[in-house]
Amino acid sequence: MLSITTKSPYALKALTELARQGGDSPIPIGELARARGIPVQFLEQLFAVLRRAGLLKSQRGVKGGYSFAKPASEITVLEIVELLDGPLGGGSEGIFLDAANAARAILEKTTVADVVEQEKKAAGVAMYYI
């Protein structure tokens, strides 16, 4: 079926924040969770899956946190969804398979870096000066 739980959107929000804060130094998970309004324990579970899959790397200690194991421009939204929620459209038939394939096509061509750019553009549109 075509099923995306809250796991994927929360993970994408946190990864977008990680990319936005960017740099080579790790960002504490609590900081990412606070910035995007995500429960820390939930985000820890999601990031553990993404770390095991090779998308993130973690560093322990005072200057610890998470950073990307590969560039945000190489991590697709589909990859995140399928790691956290399973195959998109698995077991679908007919019109539901068509819908799943359409969703897959969009999510496959959209990267975390693309989402960061979309957020920047949206923030720029919302800003006005007097």
Score class of each variant (00 low, 15 high):
2 L>G: 02
2 L>V: 12
3 S>W: 08
6 T>L: 14
6 T>K: 14
7 K>T: 10
8 S>C: 10
9 P>S: 13
9 P>F: 04
13 K>V: 01
13 K>E: 02
14 A>S: 06
15 L>I: 07
16 T>D: 01
16 T>W: 00
17 E>Y: 00
18 L>R: 01
18 L>K: 00
20 R>A: 07
21 Q>R: 07
21 Q>K: 09
25 S>R: 12
26 P>V: 06
28 P>K: 04
29 I>R: 00
29 I>P: 01
30 G>V: 08
31 E>W: 02
32 L>A: 04
32 L>R: 00
32 L>S: 00
32 L>H: 02
32 L>Q: 01
33 A>Q: 00
34 R>H: 15
35 A>N: 05
35 A>W: 02
35 A>P: 09
36 R>N: 10
36 R>I: 02
37 G>R: 09
38 I>S: 04
39 P>N: 14
39 P>W: 07
40 V>R: 10
40 V>P: 07
41 Q>F: 11
41 Q>V: 07
42 F>L: 14
44 E>Y: 14
44 E>F: 13
44 E>I: 15
46 L>F: 06
47 F>E: 04
47 F>I: 04
48 A>R: 14
48 A>Q: 10
50 L>A: 03
50 L>D: 01
51 R>E: 13
52 R>I: 09
53 A>V: 02
54 G>D: 08
54 G>Q: 07
55 L>D: 02
56 L>G: 02
58 S>E: 05
60 R>P: 13
61 G>R: 08
61 G>Q: 12
62 V>Y: 12
63 K>E: 15
63 K>M: 14
65 G>R: 02
65 G>I: 03
66 Y>S: 06
68 F>Q: 01
70 K>R: 15
71 P>R: 13
73 S>R: 05
73 S>C: 08
74 E>C: 12
74 E>H: 13
76 T>A: 14
77 V>K: 00
78 L>Y: 01
79 E>W: 03
80 I>P: 00
81 V>W: 00
82 E>G: 03
85 D>M: 10
85 D>Q: 09
85 D>N: 06
87 P>N: 12
87 P>G: 11
87 P>M: 12
88 L>T: 00
88 L>A: 04
89 G>V: 08
89 G>H: 11
90 G>A: 14
92 S>D: 03
92 S>K: 02
93 E>V: 01
94 G>N: 11
94 G>A: 13
95 I>E: 06
98 D>K: 06
98 D>G: 08
98 D>C: 08
99 A>N: 13
99 A>G: 09
100 A>N: 05
101 N>P: 07
101 N>W: 06
101 N>F: 08
102 A>C: 13
104 R>E: 05
104 R>F: 05
105 A>M: 12
106 I>E: 15
107 L>R: 06
108 E>K: 06
110 T>W: 02
112 V>I: 15
112 V>E: 04
113 A>R: 04
113 A>Q: 09
114 D>M: 09
114 D>Y: 07
114 D>V: 11
115 V>G: 01
117 E>R: 11
117 E>F: 09
118 Q>H: 11
118 Q>T: 12
120 K>A: 10
121 K>L: 13
122 A>D: 12
122 A>Y: 06
122 A>G: 10
124 G>P: 05
126 A>W: 07
127 M>Q: 09
127 M>C: 10
127 M>I: 10
127 M>Y: 08
128 Y>H: 15
128 Y>W: 12
130 I>V: 14
130 I>R: 15
